[in-house]
Design a binder for these strands. Structure first.
Lengths: 193, 193
DNA sequence: TGTACATCAGTGAACGCGCGTTCACTGATGTAC
DNA sequence: TGTACATCAGTGAACGCGCGTTCACTGATGTAC
């Protein structure tokens, strides 16, 4: 059942796309190779023709979702970015949402290759946000960088904490809302201390 | 090989203590019942005499580590609390550190009983911190609560992101340090916006 | 352009392994007399 | 206080299951002539 080279490449791409969603939704240990391949319309035996190992796909899926997020955030203001990031919609959209709150906990226990992919994803987001931040005359680059890191940590932490609470619990909603308000407030009155 | 009632109770407690560390270090899926029991000096067969299921122990271990953290933070200033929380020591001490950055990602995919335990742990920390916060005349209770939630999210997010970076990478250290500085700065100049 | 054949993407059975859980058994504890 | 026996905490073999990975095979693709 050989398949054209173009078809094979498309199949491979479909595996990566499906994996990036399934992993975000259920974690690296929560999805097996059989299900990963089935989600791309294939059977599991062909997996090792495309990837060296499951860990290999984990890294590639993470890289894909980071680049996808970066593309999606193109031309979006910092304000707008966090307004969506810290929303109930984003919290509930695990499969399509940001990879960081979905998989950083898992990534921390994975091989260095995966952690390197995550670090690159974080760095990419930091650079993008820092450059999109409204200019503030009396701030040096270090301070802008520190504030950007802090904002990302707040946003990731809020989603992580909110998702760990029972579905529909008041605390889950309170967390994303409090963090959104506080973060946006800080954004409108930049570094005055 | 029956054992005295007191001994059995002590054994059970040792299982919970060992589990709370092992789960934090390697995640819920990363430690099996055999290893959990071995860490308490027992064999796996006796597990179901103490707990209904592995999930049961997961909830109990989380409750234990939250109450342990609460006891350890007794009488500690907010300032001092976050100074340690956002340190490389804490980031590297996964097995003994805060349960939130270690297991919230896993908890999000677990049954509601576990998520309820996490929500209770978060709520407990929020109450403790809010009451320990230095009084600020012109802030109402809602604002204090929101700022407390925001601080916890920042701290948890920073540890989560830092641990997802390769060990010894500059970014891993930069994240905890930037967040510590920003958070402490905000603490010393309370809500002026 | 048409034919003959080598290539190789995808299939599905099979591998060893560790998982959570069950259960018949052991033997010290705790109780009844 | 001492003896006889029921209780039950802990043991370790066994269960079915799903995991990541391998491999002999199939048959359409792509190539050589």
């Amino acid at each position: 059942m050989r398949v054209s080279k173009a078809q094979a490449e498309a199949n491979r791409a479909r595996i990566v796309v499906a994996a990036s969603s399934l992993f975000r939704e259920r974690g690296y240990d929560g999805v097996g190779v059989v299900e990963l391949m089935a989600a791309a319309g294939l059977t599991h035996g062909g997996f090792y023709g495309h990837f060296q190992s499951k860990v290999d796909l984990m890294a590639e899926a993470a890289a894909f979702s980071f680049s996808q997020s970066a593309a999606g955030a193109e031309g979006v203001g910092v304000d707008e970015f966090f307004r969506y990031y810290l929303s109930r919609e984003h919290r509930d959209a695990r499969a399509e949402g940001c990879t960081m709150p979905a998989l950083c906990g898992d990534a921390a226990r994975q091989p260095e290759a995966i952690k390197a992919t995550f670090a690159a994803g974080v760095e990419g987001l930091l650079v993008k946000l820092a450059s999109a931040l409204p200019e503030s005359g009396n701030e040096d680059g270090n301070r802008v960088r520190a504030r950007t890191i802090d904002m990302v940590a707040r946003a990731v932490g809020a989603i992580v904490l909110s998702r760990a609470c029972p579905d529909e619990s008041p605390l889950a909603d309170e967390i994303v809302e409090a963090c959104r308000l506080e973060l946006l407030r800080g954004l409108s009155t930049p570094a005055n201390n």
